[in-house]
Design a protein around this nucleic acid. Structure first.
Lengths: 343, 343
DNA sequence: CTTGGTTACTAAATCGCTCTAGTTGCGGGA
DNA sequence: TCCCGCAACTAGAGCGATTTAGTAACCAAG
């Protein structure tokens, strides 16, 4: 049988569909007795609203869009991403808002989706991740006038709202800590150079290294995969004067690096200190456990969702939320460099 | 300015909306010259279809739903899940179908979403995961008459299509391998007992243990988290006659178990062999690397997507796809039990 | 020159719901 | 008694697309 519509309910109760609509949406215009009868019948007939019909009338879609421009195979291995997704989802659930997720090939396709979903009222807003240097997506979202929250900052996200943690400050705290332990040659296995946060972290390292007059401070770029992380580590450890500490932009790469060190007979933390920029089960679970920046990604995602909902509720406002700066959780993978480094 | 509609295009070109609709959908009813002019103007005006309006008319939603009844915080730590999601997404992208993802509290809420999204034509079909013993969701999906694919089998998924790998066969291969190495006391750190695949694995272990006349073969249930996995391992290793091999239902738990063994001074693989039922970066990356069942979860997700699309295209058919049985990838965490076990 | 068939197009109904602009009935104040 | 105001409800337009029935123009065959 066809799914029941408000017209069916109206007929059955013997009122107009307007009355049914009022009753079902809890707004004035019907008497208490009638309202009760309508609700009763709606329940009996197993009626559910047709969101497309509502959307046509200009109502909320009760969904937010998340479009990610990465090869789909890269999504799965990132605990950070998975955690973020969970948090986001959890925050949205509070208001029964769904998450419309789509993975596309490149930024071009991503922007096309922004246009399509906006004109179709398919979502009420967008969450934008992987903020890039001179990001063209910003202008598109601004032009569409759709609520949007950017993950990343500070600044460089135009008139859009954003939620971010202080990457620079975090990197500085790592470098300071390592320098205090006595490290003078620090390497940084970074992510894609096009990403703004990658840039910011590399810059922070360089800046502080200069101030502290460190002997060496290089950033090596990778695609965030465990294999490139391993390769980069192998290259770094093969240098004649190898670094005594390596900072990894993700937990997966840190783990891969730890593996390579073991393979090459480099002892952690005696010969090499390892720090991960992301914390997750992975860093806690291994031996030696990896010193990492803890940043409660789940809570971060949740905060992102909250800001998204606020911006949807009042599109005029523009939020710029700085979340707690991640703090270093020291575990077993860091120590003062061995004596042999001295010469 | 308001987003352009086909009416705007019709006015500008000087034809009726009907003609515009025909032209934009590439169907007969307009001449070539007119069609070209309409397409040209639509492009100029930056027109995009309004999917809600189409949905009202009964068209496809170009989206499939995935509703997961787990606390959102549990989603992020499962490489299996993340990988599956990636594969699913990749498969759907082929036909530009989006994935509508929602995490809910329990199966009750999940079924309510099935009803809502179906009557709202919000999705063209559902992917159902975490098949349970006497699963009530099957009946709901059948009753709604909506295309659906169940992850899990064989059997017990009513008239719905399904995609599955042979869990039983896989577990048997693990037990056989361990028994061949000489293990006589094997433990199984399993997932939630309500899940059908957990049951099937535990049963397979018991069956084979009986056939091989093993001394011990227990299954301990957990919630899949690393902490419960660690706790279960601790308990097992504290027994007077502890198991010489432990099979974990997930890679995260295997990793946690490896950590506990280290903590307790139990050497892997000398004193204890460890096998993970899921493979991922985690098992490859650690030292010792963990012997695991490799099952290309990404490809599995992709296959799931393909079947979903086929069932949507022709709702009459019912598919029951068995994917390749996962094969054991032997790494460093398994070996013959030490001599001391003999007595 | 009519008839039949085809092509190119228009007008309007339709999908399910919301919301505005009435309409009706009733009680109370002048 | 008359009218006003209010609550309860109805009628119907509108959202953006699809789709069907209908029409006008044209050509070819009889």
């Amino acid at each position: 049988m066809r799914r029941p519509t408000i017209t069916d309910i109206a007929e059955r109760v013997g009122v107009s569909k307007g009355a049914v609509s009022f009753a079902l949406n809890g707004r004035p215009g019907v008497g208490e007795a009638t309202r009760a009868r309508i609700l009763q019948v709606a329940k009996e007939m197993n009626w559910r609203p047709h969101s497309a019909a509502r959307a046509l009338g200009g109502a909320r879609a009760e969904a937010v869009g998340l479009v990610i421009a990465r090869p789909a195979s890269a999504l799965g291995v990132e605990p950070f991403f998975a955690q973020l997704l969970s948090g986001l989802q959890a925050g949205l659930s509070a208001q029964a808002v769904a998450l419309q997720l789509l993975i596309v090939e490149d930024a071009e396709a991503e922007m096309e989706i922004y246009r399509e979903w906006t004109s179709a009222h398919r979502v009420d807003g967008f969450v934008m991740v992987d903020l890039m240097v001179r990001d063209p997506r910003i202008a598109v979202l601004e032009e569409l006038g759709v609520p949007a929250v950017v993950l990343g900052g500070p600044g460089r996200h135009g008139s859009l709202s954003s939620v971010w943690a202080d990457d620079r400050e975090a990197m500085l705290s790592i470098v300071d800590y390592l320098a205090a332990l006595g490290h003078r040659r620090i390497a940084h296995v970074a992510g894609l150079p096009a990403f703004r946060h990658t840039q910011r972290r590399a810059r922070a390292l360089r800046d502080r290294a200069g101030r502290l007059a460190l002997e060496e401070a290089v950033s090596v770029h990778t695609d965030f995969s465990d294999s490139e992380g391993a390769a980069a580590t192998r290259a770094l450890l093969s240098r004649p004067r190898r670094p005594t500490a390596i900072v990894y932009d993700s937990d997966v790469m840190a783990l891969a690096g730890l593996g390579v060190a073991g393979e090459m007979g480099v002892k952690v933390p005696d010969d090499l200190s390892i720090v991960a920029f992301d914390d997750s089960v992975l860093t806690r679970i291994t031996h030696p456990a990896i010193t990492a920046l803890s940043r409660d990604t789940f809570a971060f995602g949740k905060r992102l969702a909250e800001v998204m909902l606020e911006v949807i509720a009042d599109p005029e406002q523009r939020k710029d939320v700085k979340t707690e700066t991640p703090r270093l959780t020291v575990r077993e993978s860091t120590a003062a460099p061995g004596a042999w480094q001295g010469d």
